[in-house]
Amino acid sequence: MNETMKFGVVVFPGSNCDFDTFHVLQNVMRQETVFLWHKDSDLQNVDCVILPGGFSCGDYLRSGAFARFSPIMAEVQKFAAAGGLVLGICNGFQILLEAGLLPGAMLRNKNLKFICQHVYIKIDNNKTPFSQAGKKNQVLSIPIAHFDGNYYAPPEMLAELERKKQIVFRYCDENGQLTEEANVNGSLHHIAGVVNEQGNVLGMMPHPERASEKILGSADGQVIFQSIIDYLEKKTDSRKKKAGRITRPVVSPLPPHIGNL
């Protein structure tokens, strides 16, 4: 393998999916991967930042409420503002919501229980850097493990998310139907994952790193990591090409569906 992309997995005190995520990126997806300590202020030139699952800073007060003040988050904010790819998984999603990098908030699961089980989600928007390796409406089997995954956004915000196709994953049954039973945590509009308006920050409650090897029951989570790798590779290639054609104007490195920037 020649060049790979470089991934950074942020480690907060209380993160517990950091090693799983690192393992999948390095040993399954074969990408260069580094850990980023939450007190650091250097993203080490990574191409993609991942906020892993766990119970960052004890999840005291609210899930993700304290982690968002960690020094590394200021860098993640800048990185995201410059178009860098940021993926938050489970607690990482909660941190992105608390940090205001993604719209909405999490409520306690509707059944008031910690839910740890395999669920089905379907890809509602496969035009994002995090889902482009999948097909529209493709059903993925990926586990969840959370107490606060009941996604909430006020009605106007929800309408906006729908209109701008920011809902990337929705809880469904194995046939892709949006049944009430399939929406185990009670999320509004069955939301399992949302992307920001610019398309470069995604949060999802299911754990793709726990479903990236067949031997563990499902390798569907690879769709998410492969999408990111494909997207980054394409971006790198087109940059190289552009560098060779100096007469052309510099084009934004952001994906084309971000027309409104």
């Binding site: 306690r108 699961n109 509707k110 059944n111 008031l112 909430y152 006020p154 009670g186």
Partner: peptide, 13 residues
């Protein structure tokens, strides 16, 4: 407290 428009499953319990 949760806003009136937000469902409060713990309060319901």
């Amino acid at each position: 407290s949760l806003k009136p428009s937000v469902l409060d499953p713990q309060g319901q319990a």
